[in-house]
């Protein structure tokens, strides 16, 4: 049984983007804050902190989930993947990121990390989605800039690029 008393810090060890990573967190620390403030990985964005906007979406044990609705303590012993995992060490964008750029599917980029992580999970399960399915997954995100059409085009095209 894992127990962390309030106002104390406990060590959290997780596999972050494939690498064993350790940091300290209070019992109430959100995974978003742990990633950004403790680890220093700021790719995961924070918007609403109640699960609605989707910009904090990361993969936890391989499935897309809201980091703002996850306690850092709950991530102990698990695998977490953030948007930082998508780009190679050489800085080369992955096919999904390329598609976003080609379709002008971002402006300010605030929503982008979450959308990329959602589709990283979804396209693994459904490599050849319909437009309706893509819209359904996008429904879990709010983008204030693009009007969504570019995002739909980019995800359809990105899926195609990932298949080939």
């Amino acid at each position: 049984m894992r127990r962390v008393a309030k106002d104390t810090k406990a060590r959290v060890t997780l596999t972050l983007n494939g690498k064993k990573t350790t940091g300290e967190a209070e019992s109430r620390t959100l995974l978003t804050d742990f990633l950004r403030h403790e680890i220093g990985m700021t790719g995961t964005h924070v918007g609403c902190e109640h699960g609605v906007c989707g910009c904090c979406t990361v993969l936890i044990d391989g499935v897309a989930a809201r980091a703002c609705l996850t306690l850092a303590q709950a991530a102990d012993g698990r695998s977490v993947e953030t948007v930082e995992s998508l780009t190679g060490l050489d800085g080369k964008l992955n096919p999904l990121q390329e598609a976003l750029r080609d379709h002008h599917a971002l402006q300010c980029g605030f929503c982008t990390p979450g959308i990329l992580m959602s589709f990283t999970d979804f396209l693994k399960r459904v490599p050849d989605p319909t437009v309706e399915q893509v819209k359904d997954v996008l429904g879990g995100h709010i983008c204030r800039c693009t009007g969504y059409q570019g995002l739909i085009d980019a995800m359809m095209d990105g899926a195609k690029r990932l298949r080939s």
Binding site: M1, R2, R3, V4, K6, D7, R28, L30
Partner: peptide
């Protein structure tokens, strides 16, 4: 906002 402090048990 952030939660108020609590004990965490798993």
């Amino acid at each position: 906002m952030k939660p108020r402090a609590f004990d965490y048990v798993r």
